[in-house]
Simulated scan of single mutants.
Amino acid sequence: MLNIFAVNTVLNESRKLRDKILPEEYPSGEQYLIPIIESIDNHKTLEITYQGHWQDKSYTFQIEPYCIKAFKQRWYVAARSPYYDKVLIYSLDRILEMKQTDLPFEYPQTFHPKAYFDDSFGVIVDEEYDVEKISIKVYGNQCKYFRSLPLHHSQKESETHSNYSIFTFRLRPTYDFCQAILSHGDFVEVLEPQWFRIQIGTTIQKMNQLYE
């Protein structure tokens, strides 16, 4: 699969193709990729000044970077927070400043980036949500979209009918997965678990009230 780094290499080497290849643009944060990669490789702690989307002010603290992940046009770093003593996810576009330190950290042999995100839809790894079987009914030609671009690696088409199909997933139904389901509008209906069906239905009702 051709990734963003390969595309950028092609563009840099062939100027005449630059206006004919239109990769997705990332809002910001790419300038931090190299120092993060170097810190992961050298096992060196980073000091960052960070302001989350829901925070009124920024904070400066240290992180121990474990891996980088791209999701929906944003770069994220999974890093251990020494303060909280756990792995947290930081969006690179929310980093205001970054500097490498000489403070070493030990990369845990038990941490495997792919396995860490396996049960998650995007970048929200919230263990407060159990890994569950999710069943959805997809209507009409939208089934073709799900077949060609699965939402998650656990996706399976358990039933196929003339005007709909049943797709199942095994993951943590976190906020970002909820948003992905809602993005398909009335082409997708959640069947189970019941609590997730109710949650999606309640969200749709609130959305409908905005247009009444």
Rank of each mutant, 00 (worst) to 15 (best):
L2C: 03
I4A: 11
I4T: 05
F5Y: 07
A6G: 12
N8L: 12
T9D: 11
V10P: 14
L11F: 01
N12C: 11
S14W: 07
K16V: 10
K16A: 13
L17D: 02
D19I: 15
L22R: 05
L22D: 11
P23D: 09
P23E: 04
P23W: 06
Y26S: 10
Y26F: 13
S28K: 04
S28E: 09
S28F: 01
G29T: 00
E30C: 10
Q31I: 12
L33D: 00
L33P: 05
I36R: 01
I37S: 04
D41I: 01
H43A: 10
K44S: 11
L46N: 02
E47R: 01
T49M: 04
G52H: 02
W54H: 15
W54Y: 10
W54A: 09
Q55A: 02
Q55V: 02
T60V: 10
F61S: 02
I63V: 00
E64H: 04
E64P: 02
P65V: 02
P65G: 00
K69V: 11
A70S: 09
A70K: 00
K72C: 02
K72S: 07
Y83E: 13
Y84T: 03
V87S: 06
L88D: 14
S91A: 14
S91F: 05
L92Q: 03
E97D: 07
M98D: 03
K99L: 06
K99C: 06
Q100S: 15
D102Q: 13
L103Q: 11
L103C: 06
L103R: 11
P108L: 02
Q109K: 10
Q109I: 10
Q109V: 11
T110L: 08
T110Y: 10
F111E: 06
H112Y: 15
P113K: 02
P113A: 12
P113T: 10
K114T: 12
K114I: 13
K114Y: 11
A115Y: 15
A115T: 13
F117S: 02
D118R: 08
S120P: 07
G122E: 05
D126Q: 08
E128Y: 07
E128P: 13
Y129H: 08
I134L: 06
Y139M: 07
G140M: 03
N141A: 12
C143M: 09
K144N: 09
K144W: 03
Y145C: 07
Y145R: 13
S148E: 14
P150H: 01
K156I: 06
T160R: 08
H161G: 05
S162N: 10
N163D: 08
S165W: 01
F167M: 00
P173V: 05
T174F: 02
T174L: 05
T174W: 00
Y175F: 12
Y175W: 04
Y175T: 03
D176M: 01
C178D: 14
A180Y: 06
L182G: 01
D186G: 13
F187N: 09
V188E: 09
E189F: 08
V190P: 10
L191P: 13
L191K: 03
E192M: 12
W195R: 13
W195L: 15
F196V: 14
I198G: 11
I198N: 14
Q199V: 10
I200S: 05
G201Q: 07
T202F: 15
T203R: 14
I204P: 12
I204F: 09
Q205P: 15
K206A: 13
Y211H: 00
E212W: 09
E212G: 13
